[in-house]
Design a protein around this nucleic acid. Structure first.
Lengths: 183, 183
DNA sequence: TTGACAATACCGTCCAGACGGTACAGTAAC
DNA sequence: GTTACTGTACCGTCTGGACGGTATTGTCAA
């Protein structure tokens, strides 16, 4: 909504990083302010309560994710990709990189599980969009859950899968996403 | 290891319930003690620090899960079921019931992500066991991740899937688990 | 059998520190 | 003069955990 210079975004980023490295439950306002290079007064000017900060953390996460997803599905290439293909691709990319923004979401969860409500509704909407494009609902659900599984592992730093195992998962997803009416 | 009367187990149960309904980050020793019907001194006698409580919460979760899994795969029926089938079945059952014990795990995560280490190693071992029994590694990985996805949704109270969608997922899992060499 | 002692399993209180949040005076840019 | 902060001081509350005390049970020599 805003797009103003930076203070707000610096705070959000600092909060996410802190949650990532100090543990989601140990996120204090003082620490966030310090890390963001902002005074505590300044922090509370941008986010009047901690709850608002958490909420913003979650909303920011969704907004960024959705923006990337939309960009990907409309693609630089003239032909728009399928939504599922874009989702798979995006998830694969997210998996490769360190991504502290998700840690902010966990921090919000630690504070109060209700902060995840926006994520719930977003996920449901996404699933509905994907369903509308798919001919085989069962396969879609399986693919969706595979991504969900991958994502939860990432979230918990569960680097359990070997490289070849991850590749198997992604090549499965890619083949499913590529097949339009694969019944 | 002990198995003495109950105090320790009452505390563990109380902690899990509290984490579930008060938010994982808001788990205080006083609250746990009160809910368990134990004084704070008593609590700290059983678990000398909060960290030990968290650790016990995680270990208890794994131990219970593994015990049920082993019991299920050796089955009341003479013939032992396949490990994957047992895992699928157990996950399905867990999905049906309210299960606060998992909330304790999230509480531990909130305190310090390292508390999840035992879960990491357990999951990896489980996956290896499943792999040893399976002929098609790729399908196994997919099934494993589907369960992981289902589990993470449950963990976050993401009651996103409609009933028929959940059924699709489980019938997929069941069919995969049933097929021994389905290549 | 009994008395002395010790271990176990807890209770209740207290405290230093951290935390979220408020208040407010000052300031620098637009 | 408004906006967007900085900096500091402060308050009330909560939290982990240390501590001293106590009731119950067990052990064992005399």
């Amino acid at each position: 909504m805003s797009g103003r210079p930076s203070s707000r975004e610096k705070i959000l980023a600092a909060a996410a990083e802190l949650a990532d490295c100090a543990g989601p439950g140990n996120l204090s306002l003082d620490a966030v302010a310090q890390r963001a290079g902002v005074s505590k007064g300044g922090l509370l000017y941008n986010f009047p309560t901690k709850a608002k900060l958490m909420q913003a953390l979650v909303e920011d996460y969704i907004a960024k994710f959705d923006a990337t997803l939309v960009a990907k599905s409309q693609g630089a290439c003239g032909e728009p990709t399928s939504r599922l293909a874009a989702y798979v691709e995006l998830s694969a990319e997210e998996f490769e990189q360190v991504q502290p923004s998700a840690a902010g979401v966990v921090a919000a969860l630690a504070e109060d599980p209700d902060f995840l409500n926006p994520i719930r509704t977003y996920k449901r909407q996404l699933l509905d969009t994907l369903k509308a494009e798919s001919t085989d609902a069962a396969k879609l659900i399986v693919a969706f859950l595979v991504i969900e599984g991958l994502r939860s592992m990432k979230l918990f730093d569960m680097d359990i899968l070997h490289e070849d195992e991850r590749d198997m998962a992604f090549s499965y997803l890619l083949s499913e996403a590529a097949a339009p009416g694969a019944k």
